[in-house]
């Protein structure tokens, strides 16, 4: 029975059948760790993030890292060619990944990435949106909700101001961006379910 890891945070979806489950997991972990560290480095640069309690910094990062990675790596999903580039640099078509066992999550990620990329945001806009994704006061385990909420509101105001300035004739972009937040939550939940299934397997 062949096994595949269809998450693009892998070097390749193919798993060496000679390797133990532990070795496969270790390799996967080595592969995505640098990306997670980048998310932490990004968070540290958000003005006000380091002023939150360490507990809340960790809670926000634990809950939001997947969503930040989806936004940061949206360009790995080539909507035109319907393929995904893995960290190893190789591209795999959606059909190939489907035969390897990818399901609704991958299709939903494609839909999300297509809509996000279609907004044509600048690097600065994308970066501020990513900060809004990360600093969400309704994540579980937040001890000082008021502080996180205050920072979240400041970031949302800054995002609205930037989008309004850059796209004066496209007022719907800001609303569309905010509507991406529940979409990301939904992807996050689907991803957690797949991780659970993987671990049980």
């Amino acid at each position: 029975s062949r096994m595949f890891l269809v998450c693009p945070m892998n070097m390749s979806p193919r798993v060496d059948p000679q390797k133990s489950g532990h070795e496969v997991w270790e390799e996967f972990s080595r592969s995505f760790t640098p990306a997670v560290r980048e998310v932490v480095e990004f968070a540290k640069k958000i003005p006000g993030f380091r002023e939150l309690s360490q507990h809340d910094q960790v809670s926000l990062l634990k809950a939001g890292t997947f969503e930040v990675l989806v936004v940061r790596f949206a360009s790995l999903f080539d909507v035109t060619e319907r393929c995904v580039t893995f960290l190893g640099g190789n591209k795999y078509s959606v059909d190939a990944l489907r035969t390897m066992g990818s399901g609704d999550l991958l299709s939903s990620m494609f839909d999300f990435c297509e809509k996000l990329m279609n907004l044509g945001l600048s690097e600065e806009e994308m970066s501020l949106f990513t900060a809004v994704v990360l600093v969400s006061a309704d994540r579980s385990g937040i001890e000082n909700v008021n502080s996180v909420e205050a920072l979240q509101e400041t970031l949302i105001r800054a995002l609205r101001s930037l989008i309004t300035r850059n796209h004066p004739n496209e007022s719907a972009i800001f609303t569309k961006l905010l509507l991406k937040l529940p979409d990301l939550r939904s992807l996050n939940n689907m991803h957690s379910e797949q991780l659970l299934a993987f671990k049980v397997h």
């Binding site: 540290k44 360490q54 910094q57 634990k62």
Partner: peptide, 27 residues
């Protein structure tokens, strides 16, 4: 399995990355 982030070892990576910065600041 109720906490996927901990399952993945994410919390450990996150804490180390955050603490690294604290140590730098102390220096």
């Amino acid at each position: 399995f109720s906490d996927p982030a901990s399952n993945l070892g994410l919390e450990d990576i996150i804490r180390k990355a955050l603490m690294g910065n604290l140590e730098e600041r102390q220096e």
